[in-house]
Amino acid sequence: MTGSLARRCGAELVGTALLIVFGPGAVVAALTVGDGTLDYAGLGMIALSFGLVVALVIYAFGSTSGAHINPAVTLALATTGRFPWRDVGPYVLAQLAGSVLGGLLVVGAFGTGAVDLGNVGGVAFGDGVGYPQAILAEALGTFLLMITIMALAVDRRAPVGWSGWLIGLSVTGLVLVFGPLTGAAVNPARAFGPNATAALFGGDVDWTQYPAYVIGPLLGALAASLVYDVLARPGDAEPGPGPDVQGTQGEVTGSRT
């Protein structure tokens, strides 16, 4: 990673805002075209939009901040010694702020009617989905995302230049599978921004579901990073942690995610 903490947090803020504009924004667009209804073909287009924006944000800001754009990713990297704990708080705050900014931009583009279209593309449990099922779905989706990050962005043995596209495709895949259950947020910031924006404009937001969008992604990201370390041992191909983890292992996430 390069630049000051302020510059890196600015990259996280802008990257997360773009994620919301072209992720949940795609939900609003699909509901607009479908007169308030969404079929599986529409979900496919939403998944594609999510995947593309994730890939492009990684290529744009990966060398600056690591392009985490997800508190669960930041915490998993810190837990495994690949990101300094002192920077976790500022990163998470920047991601949450970026998610709200993105939500406001969606409302600015589509008008306040976006609040009526799924709460600015916000996430919610599907019909008949309970808390344990929602947490499991979010954890499984995040597991796929994080293990792709570990394989393509953290592991120095990975082929250069593929991380953005394949991480983006992992997001497309998990949205296609788990979107009908929870909206497949796999990201506490993605879940927070649209709902917070909708609440600002009088939307009916069920905040009691939000903890599932924090617990599930955190469990999935931590599990994936630990499983990858045990089974694939990327540490064998990484420099050992020195006095400044950001300057050694942390550099991998900055240059390749």
Rank of each mutant, 00 (worst) to 15 (best):
A6L: 15
R7G: 14
R8C: 15
G10S: 12
E12C: 12
E12H: 03
G15P: 05
A17Y: 12
L19C: 14
V27M: 13
L31E: 06
L38Y: 09
L38T: 02
D39A: 12
M45T: 08
A47W: 03
G51M: 14
A55N: 05
F61C: 10
T64W: 04
S65I: 11
S65P: 04
I69T: 08
A72G: 05
A72L: 08
T74R: 09
A76M: 06
A76V: 12
A76G: 09
T80Y: 00
G81V: 06
V88Y: 13
Y91W: 09
Y91H: 10
Y91E: 11
V92T: 14
L96C: 14
A97G: 13
A97V: 15
L101N: 05
A109N: 08
V115G: 06
V120I: 14
G122K: 10
V123Q: 11
A124R: 08
A124N: 05
F125I: 00
G126K: 01
G126D: 01
V129Y: 00
L136H: 00
L136N: 01
L140H: 01
G141H: 01
T142G: 04
F143H: 07
L145W: 12
I147T: 15
T148A: 08
A151H: 05
V154G: 01
V154N: 12
D155K: 09
A158S: 08
A158K: 01
P159D: 06
V160C: 00
G161R: 09
G164I: 13
I167Q: 03
I167N: 05
G168N: 04
L169P: 06
V171Y: 01
T172H: 10
L174V: 15
L176I: 14
V177N: 00
G183D: 07
V186W: 00
A196K: 07
A198R: 02
L200T: 13
V205M: 02
Y210E: 06
Y210F: 14
Y210W: 05
Y213S: 04
Y213T: 10
V214T: 07
P217S: 08
P217G: 11
P217L: 01
L218R: 00
L219D: 01
G220I: 07
G220A: 05
A223P: 03
A224K: 07
L226S: 07
V227L: 12
V230W: 09
L231A: 11
P234R: 03
D236E: 09
A237N: 04
E238M: 15
E238T: 11
P239M: 12
G240E: 15
G240N: 11
G242H: 05
P243V: 14
Q246L: 15
Q246R: 04
Q246H: 00
T248I: 05
T248W: 04
G250W: 04
R256N: 12
T257D: 08
